[in-house]
Write a protein that binds this DNA or RNA. Sequence first.
DNA 1: AATTTATGTCAAGCACATTTGACATAAAGT
DNA 2: ACTTTATGTCAAATGTGCTTGACATAAATT
Lengths: 65, 65
Amino acid sequence: MKNRLKVLRAERNWTQNDLAQALEVSRQTVNAIETGKFDPSLPLAFKAARLFQLPIEDIFSDQED
Amino acid sequence: MKNRLKVLRAERNWTQNDLAQALEVSRQTVNAIETGKFDPSLPLAFKAARLFQLPIEDIFSDQED
DNA sequence: AATTTATGTCAAGCACATTTGACATAAAGT
DNA sequence: ACTTTATGTCAAATGTGCTTGACATAAATT
């Protein structure tokens, strides 16, 4: 599962910690998702989609990286 | 998390078992998701989206039912 | 040069997604 | 009436999402 979180953060000049707080998860969770350690749950993906006002498919993509 | 799996199945006259095989998960998993026992993983949501050729948001919605 | 900030990573633990195998029930088919 | 099919549900096991706390390192700040 690839994702554009790092880019979306960079566009907003947000740290992993900023994003973690916005998503109400831990910094380690954001880091683990960004670095491909695991996939977010569907509810967390929805939360990110709402936050960035993008479809889930525009943030996450189903292919390996 | 609400979802339209039951309707999408019905439109195609598919059983839970049919859907489970198409998604490569167990029948119990499909049943549990349909009956709201738990949310699918993000990869499984992507698989359903691909199967039905719909955006994830058109199959699952982030509100409780 | 010393301190703070951002990122990456590890380990232990809890919660939840998914499995298999089983059983119950209602509806449909024979 | 009997059998099969579809659905719902349970229990135990396994894997993964997510937590906190901790430590390391590199970059930025002072």
